[in-house]
Write a protein that binds this DNA or RNA. Structure first.
Lengths: 249, 249
DNA sequence: CTGATTTCTGCGTTTTTTTGCAGGAATTTA
DNA sequence: TAAATTCCTGCAAAAAAACGCAGAAATCAG
């Protein structure tokens, strides 16, 4: 096998699978590891692949996983936020949890919107405060430094006193079997209370979190009135949820 | 699994769920905890994640910060803050209002101090949240956007439920005749409630505000247990207050 | 066509990287 | 305060990489 031929094969494999192991390559092509290593070395110098200990990675691998953009999946979250904002009308009482998607929602609210936002999430409240026309109601109680949200029985009691028109939940994990799940017990209690206190429950979830599970259950899919992702409604990932009776936007 | 691959997976999980536990990661990827720890270490050195005891946090989630620009007469306020901090002991319940002097107090708290701070001021709460050992209780209610503090009957009711060891009031104006005065009716209601709910009332006031008056009365000088300014106790400006029976530090 | 030169490949050795483990220190939690 | 986790340090084994070298193959010059 010619050297050029071999390198073309390697490059093909890298682009196909996003990674190659030098060990498997050398058995596939039946050459010594040194040869593979030298090939990888050359391809790496030409910028065709990224050489790592044990093999090589495609360049797209790095683009996908080590996004140089500091804010992770901001665009997706922006898309979700805009869909969600379409559900808010003037005069509404809106209950929101915390999380980066909610922050994006808060930042994207149109300036003319006049509504009342209720939350215990400090980062979210900070964003709502900057808005010219929104009334902000803060749920008080002990602050969980971890999640930057007020948690505890007082907070839950306060939420129970509210009857909100709509509730937006930032989602940590959603799955067909287990519904909405999360990893912080106290936050879960809050979210449960929020669901009970709202006429309409909307889950905001980037597609990556779909079909993932966390240890603690928030609610079943049947309690969600709407699931918002950055995907078009026709995306196959959403099909099982539509089939399960979940409304999707 | 390649090392880079593993780190990409970890980073992905961190960005997705805002936090990861090393314990769960090592069962997921089936490597030793040491390996996970070393990965976390490296990712943290590259600034990709924030390493904490037991796992790691995403960086984007922790970017809650408040614009500190234009801190007015910072040095004097620092002096006042340090005097005030001398009054706080471990285990105390501390009630604070808002204002830049209180912020300075919050920033200057010694890291070992273990106490519970109660406040409705968003900027103050943000500072307390950064402290490793203090418990933060947030007073909830409607947020007044210009004073950045929760105001209203619910907030007052909550404060009434508390019996704090000490209360620090940022002062807007203090005068021999009129006592403590302010210019925001709702904030005054809150401060009154705070005074009633505290065993000891401490006013923090920079010298410039001494002998000035605002439209709405908070309380008389007789209700103050201590007045803290940046001046030495012997300063002639403070003499009339000492004569009137106000303790000064 | 032939010999010299260059390139390529594989082998053995040394060096580096990676990983897991044991212990003791540090931190967290009850 | 005591128990349980988690963290750190040094160490050792395994894997991979780097290096030098020599033989094989290809290229080139005369």
């Amino acid at each position: 096998m010619l050297k050029k031929e071999r390198q073309a094969y390697i490059l093909h494999q890298v682009n196909l699978h996003n990674k190659v192991l030098s060990s498997s390559l050398c058995t596939e092509i039946n050459v010594s590891e040194d040869t593979i290593r030298r090939d990888l070395q050359e391809l790496s110098e030409e910028g065709k692949v990224i050489k790592v200990h044990g093999g090589a990675l495609s360049h797209s691998f790095n683009q996908v996983y080590f996004s140089t953009n500091g804010v992770y999946s901001q665009n997706q979250k922006k898309t979700i936020a805009l869909k969600a904002i379409g559900l808010i009308n003037n005069g509404m009482f809106v209950l929101t949890s915390g999380g980066t998607t909610i922050i994006e929602l808060a930042r994207s609210l149109p300036p003319q919107l006049k509504a009342t936002f209720i939350s215990g999430s400090i980062p979210a409240i900070l964003e709502y405060m900057h808005h010219p026309n929104i009334e902000v109601i803060l749920i008080g109680d002990k602050i969980s430094k971890n999640s930057k949200i007020t948690v505890g029985s007082e907070a839950i009691a306060k939420i129970r006193q509210v009857k909100a028109d709509i509730c937006f939940l930032g989602t940590n994990a959603i799955d067909l079997m287990h519904g909405i799940t999360d990893n912080d017990w106290e936050v879960v209690q809050l979210k449960k209370a929020m669901i009970e206190s709202s006429k309409k429950v909307v889950c905001l979830s980037i597609a990556e979190k779909i079909n993932s599970v966390q240890p603690i259950k928030v609610c079943g899919l049947d309690e969600i009135d709407l699931l918002i992702t950055e995907l078009p409604v026709t995306d196959p990932v959403l099909k099982p949820y539509l089939d399960a009776g979940v409304k999707v936007a």
